[in-house]
Amino acid sequence: MRVAATELSFAHSGAAPLYSGLSFRAEGGDLVALTGPSGSGKSTLLSLLGGWLAPTAGTLEISGDERVALVSQNPHGVPGRTALDHVCLPLVAAGMRRDEAVTAAREYLSLVRLEHVAERPYRMLSGGERQRMLLARALASRPGMLLVDEPTAQLDAASAREVCEVLSNLGQRGALIFIATHDHRVVDACSRVIDLLTVVPPAAEVSS
């Protein structure tokens, strides 16, 4: 999957532009950090990439028809359903039988180091475990692009480190991942950075 943003601008209705003239390109294997202070438009850019918002100017071309998956800043799941159930859902929805889906879901949970809590209900998972479980669920839907919003915002240091390692591994597996964050540990784990602080206006600074 490829993304090409050219002279991208966005402003909420009646508000000043969050950014204008933002241009960047990204493709599979890129692990891109979107940085900037609160209100700089990191989450908004994720919504633009996901197609849930439209730019006010410029173009955003996304090639490939694969799924786009979002992992929100505030994890949300079904309290009574287990971690395994959550990850099985996209697999069953894709046509797998439950037993096949369980096997595959355990592999996704293993990828985010959660195999030991597979049978635990969502309500009994810690914040970090929830975040990683939803990451596994997003991956199980086999997206072409993964959008992750502040994955370590509510985590303790150990959980944040684990999430960073997982994301770093995913990047190395060829996934195109955008991560909105202000956590330097996540930024350090990324291969590229888009700093939105520097594009209010005139343009984004993309560093490698």
């Binding site: 079904v78 309290p79 009574g80 039988r97």
Partner: peptide
Amino acid sequence: MRGTELWREAGRNFSSGAS
């Protein structure tokens, strides 16, 4: 989604209180 999986999912949602 297969029909049996659909009912199984619905049943799990009921028994877990999700629904």
